[in-house]
């Protein structure tokens, strides 16, 4: 266990740049959350072990339509605040009457957070080529703090899963992950992702996941025979 766990209020250093999850008091940097310390050459930050997703402009998230009003859709984005997708931020020009046809209540949508207005009014947009309404596959939900582990260093973990299982994966920053492909592939990918969430802070996680996928595949092969 090489990682350093801290509780809120733990002293982290003097005259270092305070990254996320920290606060400064009289030039001294302290942790603000219960989590793991990450030190760079100059900056120190604390990655929380739990907590709610706080929307940030530019993030791609997966939202669930919970209401459709006369000029916008209201989306649950797995955060304390709802996301608002206005008709004017929708890529296609559609009539108000057709809103229900484009996106129904209960459907999952990949959207981008356009801006966060005071006081926490979240405006969404669809102006990214990845943005779309999800019409196939499965969306699984994990704690958003574990998303960086699912992606891995420079995308290593996610590429491993994609390569070994061969299903399409889209990761929303808010902790929702969209999987598409054959049912069997989706099932295995979902199991793998939940395993990563459970064992997020184990050392050499990639090797474990690699072995896990191999074993699962072998097991299935035997059953088929």
């Amino acid at each position: 266990m090489s990682e350093e766990v801290v509780i809120p209020g733990c002293f982290l250093g003097e005259s270092v740049t305070a990254g996320e999850g920290t606060f400064v008091e009289e030039n001294r940097v302290y942790s603000m959350v219960y989590g793991l310390v990450k030190r760079d050459k100059k900056e120190v930050e604390v990655i929380p072990l739990s907590g709610k997703y706080l929307p940030k402009a530019g993030d791609l998230v997966i939202g669930k339509v919970i209401e459709s009003t006369f000029s916008m859709w209201i989306l649950d984005i797995n955060s304390p605040y709802d996301g608002l997708l206005r008709l004017s931020n929708y890529p296609k020009r559609i009539e108000k009457e057709d809103m229900q046809k484009e996106m129904r209540v209960g459907e999952m949508v990949i959207t981008r957070i356009k801006e966060v207005e005071f006081p926490m009014r979240i405006n969404l947009s669809m102006d990214d080529r990845k943005c779309a309404v999800i019409r196939e596959g499965v969306v699984v939900e994990i704690t958003h703090t574990k998303i960086p582990r699912v992606i891995g260093k420079g995308g290593s973990m996610i590429n491993l899963i994609k390569k070994k299982i061969g299903c399409n994966i889209f990761i929303g920053q808010n902790g929702r992950i969209w999987l598409s492909g054959s049912d069997k592939k989706i099932e295995l990918a979902a199991e793998t992702i939940l395993k990563i969430e459970r064992e997020a802070h184990v050392n050499r996680l990639a090797d474990r996941i690699d072995r896990f996928i191999k074993e699962k595949k072998k097991g299935k092969g035997k059953n088929a025979k």
Binding site: I7, P8, G9, G21, F23, Y30, M32, V33, Y34, G35, P48, L49, S50, G51, K52, T145
Partner: peptide
């Protein structure tokens, strides 16, 4: 703290 809420101490 366990809920991940930002706190000073």
């Amino acid at each position: 703290a366990d809920a991940g809420i930002p706190m000073k101490n």
